[in-house]
Design a binder for these strands. Structure first.
Lengths: 153, 153
DNA sequence: TATTGTTATACTCTATAACTATA
DNA sequence: TATAGTTATAGAGTATAACAATA
């Protein structure tokens, strides 16, 4: 009832590259699962939250661009946007040149929600970091840009 | 159209604890998103995959235990198990002492699927690790157990 | 005629409520 | 009577197909 081959195996083989990949995969998945649970006082689905963040990051996007960016079909994005608009988190304005298109922007309420969401997640993580030794924190400081690089390659 | 306040902000404040939390949160989320896309040749939902992995890790579980473990309601777990059983990935056997209960175990096919899933994800990650310098890999080797500790605290 | 977005409809996943079998 | 699991039914999210408006 208590077998856990992954963890022990990854700890044992950490010196090899394959072992490092295995250990990182497990740790990353586990930590991310914990992190995702933090800051959920808004009842937005993952797609809704990702859409809101995408619009904020790109300042203004069309529904078509958003569907492409979030890997959903245009009709699905129509519904996501409609829901976020009802909540007052996104706003629709006419497109400047093409009247077929619509320009989507974040409202101040949407920005506030994203800010609070990030604050809660980071507060949880910062609390965990406080329980580490200074050396461990230094290691994570060095590792952060490397993890960043891994995902953008 | 190209504003990205998170990344620049997190890079700038990496020396503070709050800055480290912010940078880690963004990097972890991004890397995990990339990682989750790898190895999806089976068409299992996240819940199905997590259920399969849970049964493998614990050797044998009842539907009730699985529902509790995966944070879904018992009727939902009934359907997840039924689907995985149809695919030949899980098997049901009578419980040893209580005839109301059912014992769920992984089949060889289920074990093979999990192994392949992990292999694909780790192959992607190992490829990325090869592009790093030896020093960067050493940093990640040191960071892996710390990340592991963060999630289990 | 091609493109952008929406409406109509169906399927999947999960939930709550009611039911069956066993303790 | 209480517990483990299933069946019945409903709600949320996303997909494909058909449609309206504009280029």
């Amino acid at each position: 009832m208590l077998t856990n081959p992954q963890k022990t195996a990854s700890a044992a083989n950490l010196r090899s590259d394959a072992g490092l990949a295995s250990a990182l995969r497990v740790s990353l998945a586990r930590l991310n699962r914990r992190l995702r649970k933090q800051g959920t006082g808004h009842s937005l689905t993952p797609t809704q939250l990702a859409t809101l963040a995408a619009v904020e990051r790109h300042t203004a996007m069309t529904p078509g661009e958003l569907a492409e960016h979030e890997k959903v079909q245009p009709p699905s994005m129509t519904r996501v946007i409609a829901n976020l608009e009802e909540r007052g988190l996104l706003a629709r304005t006419p497109h400047s040149t093409d009247r077929r298109q619509v320009s989507i922007t974040v409202t101040p309420a949407g920005i506030a929600l994203l800010k609070e969401e990030r604050r809660l997640k980071e507060a949880w993580l910062a609390q965990r970091l406080k329980d580490l030794t200074p050396e461990e924190r230094a290691t994570l400081r060095a590792a952060a840009p490397i993890l960043e690089k891994l995902s953008t390659t």
